[in-house]
Design a protein around this nucleic acid. Structure first.
Lengths: 222, 222, 222, 222
DNA sequence: TATGAATGAGCCTTCATTCAT
DNA sequence: CATGAATGAAGGCTCATTCAT
């Protein structure tokens, strides 16, 4: 039920929500670009307005202040993350763990390529000491990913694919860590340690090698 | 011979280098604190000078500008990272891979606990889009870590510990990714997916579980 | 006949005057609250509109600009002042001067208590250097009070109550000054010099003591 | 004992205090002019800087923020008030009450004529609802005046000049009220009810008439 | 007629940097 | 060489006012 009173938690004002969808989209994109390029503290409302060709004051009419504008952008970003994860999970429900990981990597890779600023904003925020609502916003995104890997691991366990002595929480952490870094390496060349992930031609081979490490580890069985 | 032109490669001026070691150290620490707390763009030279109780002008006499001050700080930080890695590598030369990983995790954990700002600065910079000399500075640090894991993997391979079909570069990437995230989880609670790494009491158990994943992977051998 | 040019003498537009009485009253009250709380310069049309839940544009349609809105409010305020003064003057017509003063103090005290923003707006404007129509508006209010005391003094003179050598204008000034301060002290605690006027329990005693000073002065007759 | 640490209560920074006395004076005067003309909220730091022909930033280097600049100005103003009151009290110690009042009025009149902005600032602040440190600052000034009149009244009582039944606190309030309004009328024409106080030629006559009201009251002795 | 999006001037404040002393 | 006063650009934000719908 919609309340008559303004929801003060809602980052965007009614004024903004009444704008034509297309203008909302432009504002969102300009703000996302700015925040993903400069972080929260160094982002400039002035620059955003200039890039949009609108008056400074309008931005503040839409969002009240920089913090709420950021909040709005981050909310939409978090929403965009959820989509591809959900779809790939459902689409691969009946496949073995290794294959599910493979497909997740490919799906999310494609998403990141299409929305590089989205991922840049996320990683940036991860290590930005202080920005508004840090805890709330980050744990929301983190839990998306954690839940995803946990569901995969549990499915695998239920099907008896897992080594019986494997610690479930360790496995979730292990997958989350590898995937996170996989995406970082796809986005930032120097995170790639010479592996070659950023080279699209080698992507499949890299994924195979990595999944092999995940599946069977590094050490020779005696 | 001193050139009339500022040597852009040397962040610190002769003036600064002639200062008593102890004052250099204080300046370094104050700047590190500021940069690690606020990043590059939002760090304030004013605040650094105020914290040190010296004139703002002095900072600029020492380093010319904020960028070179940052450069100087990051250089020293990178140096500090190298130390514990080198020492733990040498100290564990003859042990099996799993054990070497275990000890690396413990050693670096201890280092991070002692120098939280050092690690904070590093992670911050990792994802800060634009700061001076980004490429140069980051690849220097990254390669420290990469080299470390590569040497471990190569030693293990030479000793026949590794699964014979394992891709060496994949293994390096794999270890680098896990370790990086391990340290992040130790520092930032919400990076720890529920695994429990930030809880000192469970640290040993967690490390064992994680190393087990690294050694033998997730999938049951048929 | 409506002129094309805005009639600068009439603060409120026909549009406003055609509004239901009750809405006019709400607008007046909201504007009075804002002006009495923030003065003219720092009052915010935005805030008034927000408090009323009407569009900012409407306020400007009603009054053209902030200045005329203020003018309108002050006009009504001045009108409200006149009422209690008139009624207490008429009601005490036949009593001696001291008693008339006593009753005036009580009547106006009651009025101020009921309409604190009215008095706050007045005192505020008294010393606000620059606001539109300052001279016009203030002299209108001032003359209300002056006329009131003059009529009291003249009545007393006609009845032979006054010291024969008393300067009439001095007496008017004298009473106006005391009364003004009396009301200030009732409203603002630190205007009360320790006398105790803001303490309702002591009000009667204070008034008696003060009226005694007014009637017979401070100095012992020789 | 002077502390090494900056007294954070001190409105002016060391930077400002190190300025040549003459420049400090110019800054003080410009700020006083601005605050007395516009009050606290509507005063503009920009305007002050422009009037001084200095950079905006300098003002903030001197005082940190607008509030502390205001505080500084008000402090100096309060100090200036104290001076003439003290000197006239001491100079008239042995004279009868009426004469002491007469001389106080003349002395303070002269002071106000020389420093109109000082008095304007004071009256402005009296009725300005909200400005920083309102309570502290105003009660400091108020008590100057209250103390002055109380000492006069007590001296008169001790010498047997007073009507024996006069309430001491009422007398203090009575004098404070009359004097305050006297000065207002000297400064703001429309506070002068037609008495003529703003006309320098009539000043002496007005004072005599007013002091006569104070001494013997309005009512004929029976 | 009421609306409310748009505007740009102006506000307070912080900053990196310069330079005379 | 250290100092710290001076600077002006830029930042976030609020405001009165306009005008198309």
């Amino acid at each position: 039920m919609e309340s008559i009173h303004q929801n003060t938690d809602a980052p965007a004002s009614a004024t903004f929500l009444n704008l034509p969808e297309e203008k909302q989209q432009r504002v969102y994109q300009a703000a996302l670009d700015e925040f993903s390029a400069h972080g929260f503290g160094s982002a400039s409302s002035n620059r955003i307005a200039r890039a949009l060709g609108i008056a400074k004051g309008s931005l503040f009419q839409y969002f009240g202040n920089k913090e709420r504008l950021f909040h709005y952008v981050f909310d939409r970003v978090a929403g965009q993350f959820a989509e591809p994860l959900r779809s790939v999970r459902d689409a691969t429900r009946d496949e073995p763990l290794g294959q599910r990981i493979r497909e997740a990597l490919l799906t999310v890779s494609a998403f990141l390529e299409a929305h590089p600023e989205v991922y840049r904003l996320y990683t940036r925020m991860l290590f930005q000491e202080s920005f508004p609502l840090r805890e709330t916003l980050l744990s929301r995104v983190r839990s998306l990913s954690t839940k995803y890997w946990r569901s995969l691991v549990e499915d695998a366990k239920a099907r008896g694919e897992l080594r019986p002595d494997v610690d479930m929480e360790a496995a979730v952490f292990f997958l989350d860590a590898l995937m996170d870094r996989f995406f970082q390496a796809r986005t930032l060349p120097y995170m790639d340690t010479g592996f070659g992930l950023h080279d699209d031609a080698r992507l499949d081979a890299c994924i195979d090698a990595l999944v092999s490490c995940i599946e069977r580890g590094l050490i020779a069985p005696c």
